[in-house]
Amino acid sequence: MKSALEHFDKAFENRIRLQVMSILVANENYDFNSLKELLEVTDGNLASHLKALEKEEYINVYKSFLGRKPNTSYAASDKGRMAFMKHLEALENLIRQQKQ
């Protein structure tokens, strides 16, 4: 059991962070409001989790303007993609171990 948990990524312990990452891995990029709608979370909640992922350098942040409205979009970095895959593998391994 311990060997599988070793690869668990602390950054993905939180469900919302893991969900954000899975959306960003599946898409080239995603903007803040669409993320918020899809995950059904509050602005502040989402922002803090995005900040945490940004600090880990798992995501890149792009700020731009749509007309006069600021529009922030996010994309998974290579490092983030790798970490996400590793985390998924760890989850899969855990399931395999439990089946045995």
């Binding site: 893991l18 891995v25 599946a26």
Partner: peptide
């Protein structure tokens, strides 16, 4: 956890 990941990847894309 896994099904929520799959669901979101699908739904977001």
């Amino acid at each position: 956890e896994l099904s929520s990941i799959r669901n979101l990847m699908e739904r977001s894309a």
